[in-house]
Each structure stands twice: as C-alpha cells, then as structure tokens.
C-alpha cells in the first residue's frame, strides 16, 4: 500500500471513531491503534490475573463461611475478567501464549497496586472498597471505548465489579463497628492502601505519555487527574461514614471548587514499584510463573486426551 493510500485509510478510520462508530477486529486499523490496544488490554488482563494473588492469600483464613464464599466468588470473577480481556486482546492477532510470555518475562506490566502485601484481614476490606473502587472509576468509561471487543468485555466486567466493592466496604463497616482493636485494623488498612489506590489511577496528566492519543481513540474518556479527583470526592465521605481517617493531613473540602484538595502523592514510590522494586513484585511473578510452569503437564495431558478421543471417534466412524 502506498503512503498516500495509508493516509487516506487513516483519515477514514479517525472519522469513524469521531462519529462514535465501533471498530471490529477484522476492520482495517492503523498499526499503532492495534499495538496500543494490545498493550492496554493485555496490561488490564494481567492485572486481573495477578490481582487474584493478594486476595488468594486470605481465602483459607477468611473469618466466616459467608466471607469465604464471597472472597472465593470475587477471586473467581477476577479470573473470568482476565479471561474476557485476554480473549478480546487475541482478536487483534496476538496469541495467548505470547501474552503470557510478555507477562512472565516482565515485558508487559500489570497494575502496580498488586505489589503491596495483604497482611491482615482488613486488607480484604480495603482492597474491595478502595482498589476495586478505583478500578470501577477507571473501567466505566471504557464500556464506550472504540474497540468493540474491549467495550463488550468491559460491560461484562463492570456489571460484576460492583459486588466486589460492596463486599469490601461491608468488611470495613463490620470492623469499624466492632471492637477498638478491629477498628484499628480497619484504620491501619486504610493508611496502607490509600496512597497506592490514588497512584493506581496513573501518573499525573503532565507525566502521562499516552493520554492524548488514547483520548482520541476513546480508550480514555477522562484524564488520570480527573479520575483521581472523582475517586477522592466519592471515597472521603465513605471514610467519614466508617469513622476512620484518610491518611492525608492536607485533605480538605474546598467550597469554591466543590472538590477535595489533597496532598502531594509520592510519585517516586509509584515509579519504584512500576520498575519492579515494590514490596511484592518478585513474589507475585514467582507465584504466577511457577503456577504456569507447574500446570504445563496438566495442559499437555488434556490436549493428549482430546487428541486420543478424536482419533477414537474417527476410527469408530470409518
């Protein structure tokens, strides 16, 4: 294809997106659109899969059967969400094996929040309330993104995600209405998860290298800073309701702007974690890679069994 033809196709493509038309996998698309989507969707899928690990830590130690059933269901949902997203990503011509390979080699990233440890039961509450809360804010606008398979996967994810946040908040509420010690556990979890949750919404707009292009392709509808403000504005009153304190001395309601002002985020910490130096980066990757490697014989056996059965069926028919 000549340069002129490509340019022409690109113009038609951008116009379609501007008209809010959806792009489907077999439609012509600029290579950069394909690559950007593979990067973002796979990163999203990896986050769901790695996100199971910090919570999986507490399934066997949940304080009651009710909590255990809920946590199991939540972790199972996350596996499902990862799967919807991997499948959507594969429609762009990359294989599941390649996607896993990118995760395992460290080439692809996942959300930095999952590199923090879950040291008490209250962390299950804080993760559901804050981490899933921030995730929902990120994900709801994606239900309208331009790439059809991604948008459809996100509709399903968002439908399922709201139970995650509610179960987390309920855990926090129960702890906060409990003994002094239980309330202190809830406060401690908020102290540890608040700032990482704010970081989860991504670097500030000035630092975010992908924002402009992503806005154009409707991969993003609001900037990181707008999403972060929305998260803070909706979460602070919930902390008040719980009777625990957000660990930010600069946090203050601003009558003029109608938003909360908040303190400086420690972006050095964020970049350290992204670069692999968070408290649990190695542990998470080890858990993931060994699960994949140790499961290899099971996958091979299933394939061998399927092939044997197929041959038997053919032999019977002939």
């Amino acid at each position: 294809m000549s340069e002129k033809e490509v340019k022409n196709l690109e113009e038609i493509f951008e116009a379609r997106i501007a008209r809010d038309e959806k792009i489907e996998p077999k439609d012509w698309m600029p290579e950069k659109y394909r690559q950007t989507h593979i990067r973002q969707m796979s990163q999203h899928a990896h986050s769901e899969i790695i996100g199971m690990l910090p919570e999986g830590n507490w399934i066997t130690r949940a304080p009651s059967l009710r909590r255990k059933a809920a946590l199991l269901a939540k972790v199972q949902d996350e596996a499902g969400h990862g799967l919807y997203l991997y499948s959507a990503c594969e429609t762009l011509g990359i294989s599941r094996d390649e996607l896993y390979e990118q995760l395992h080699s460290g080439k692809a990233k996942y959300s930095s929040i999952f590199n923090y440890p879950t040291i008490t039961w209250a962390d299950m509450g804080a993760i559901g309330w804050l981490v899933d809360g921030a995730a929902i804010i990120n994900q709801v606008p994606l239900c309208n993104t331009s790439f059809g398979p991604y948008a459809r996967a996100m509709v399903r994810v968002c439908k399922e995600e709201s139970f995650h946040q509610r179960q987390g908040f309920e855990i926090m509420l129960t702890l906060c209405r409990g003994t002094e010690e239980q309330k202190a556990m809830a406060q401690d979890a908020l102290n540890r998860w608040w700032w990482p949750s704010l970081m989860m919404l991504g670097p500030t707009d000035a630092e975010s290298i992908h924002t402009e292009q992503s806005m154009k392709w409707k991969l993003k509808r609001k900037s990181n800073d707008e999403l972060r403000q929305q998260f803070i504005d909706q979460t602070v009153p919930q902390a008040d309701l719980l009777g625990i304190k957000v660990p930010d001395p600069d946090l203050k309601w601003n009558e003029e702007t109608g938003h909360y002002d908040f303190g400086e985020i420690d972006w050095d910490e964020f970049w350290q974690v992204v670069k692999g130096h968070g408290p649990c980066n190695k542990e998470r990757m080890n858990a993931r890679v060994s699960a994949w490697n140790n499961g290899e014989w099971v996958r091979d056996a299933a394939m061998a069994y399927a092939e044997k059965n197929e041959k038997r069926k053919v032999a019977k028919a002939s």
Binding site: S87, R96, R299, A302
Partner: peptide
C-alpha cells in the same frame, strides 16, 4: 458471549 481456550468440546 465470547471465546475461550479448551482442549476439547467437553472442556
């Protein structure tokens, strides 16, 4: 509804 990987139809 979507797609998935499996060794055979039953799975």
């Amino acid at each position: 509804f979507g797609s998935l990987h499996a060794a055979d139809a039953e799975m």
